[in-house]
Simulated assay, not measured.
Amino acid sequence: MTHLARSERDAFCDTLLAVGPGAPTLCSPWSAADLAAHVVVRDRRPDLAPGIWLPPLAQRLEDGQAAYAARPFPELVDLVRSGPPVWSPARLAPVDDLVNFVELFIHHEDVLRGDEQRGPRRVLSDRESRALWGSLSRLARVFFRRSPVGVVLRTPDGRSIHAHGTTELGTVVLQGRPEELLLTAYGRRRVAEVEVTGGSEPVAALWDAPLGLA
């Protein structure tokens, strides 16, 4: 069976090499090199992770990431491709798929859609799509926990997730393929191919709300 995170990592690295270090990403102002450095830090430098949440340590995280981003780009991409170090539990395929597949997918799309144009650039396998839907099913209530309106996520083939209960403002339905709904949940709605229904006021309230994992 395909190791999803490994396949996605290799595809991500191939894209990085194709677009080059200065290519734009959806994580502006980060370039492709900055995003690659972020992945390397995530894989290899757990000691820097507290800088994400603790402002006094943020500069140390930024410095560590900048040091990786300054490396020759092929060397940096090789570090991304090699994945977690031997001491990491993520070297095990099931753990890697659980903790890294979605992260790599999102950042791969950050590069592929870095031109800010809406819609997909590739076709995913059924297994990849199922894995993304499974992740969305587990995390949907977390993503939309601060929504002021009800939220239903729906695929074209009729699967649905009630991500947030209805409120006095009503309910918004987001319909699209699992990968497009996941991108929306991760704050990439401007490039996600999703059909939105529910009325102008509820939709505006949803988009104004702080969504995502933060």
Rank of each mutant, 00 (worst) to 15 (best):
T2R: 14
H3Y: 14
H3W: 13
H3S: 11
R9P: 08
R9Q: 11
F12H: 10
D14L: 09
T15H: 13
L16E: 00
G20T: 12
G20V: 12
A23I: 08
V40W: 03
R42V: 02
R44C: 13
P46N: 08
L48T: 05
G51N: 02
I52Q: 14
P55N: 05
A66P: 09
A67L: 13
Y68K: 09
P72R: 15
P74Q: 08
L79C: 05
V80A: 08
P84D: 05
V86S: 15
P89I: 14
P89H: 14
A90Q: 15
L92E: 03
V95G: 04
V95H: 04
E103G: 03
F105A: 01
H108L: 12
E109C: 05
D110P: 02
E128G: 05
A131M: 13
L132W: 00
G134Y: 04
G134H: 11
L139F: 12
L139E: 06
A140L: 03
F144A: 01
R146A: 13
L153T: 01
P156G: 08
D157G: 07
D157I: 10
H162D: 07
H162F: 06
L169P: 04
G170Q: 05
V172R: 01
V173D: 01
G176D: 00
R177H: 08
E180Y: 05
L183C: 04
T184I: 10
V191N: 00
A192P: 02
S200L: 14
E201W: 15
W207A: 10
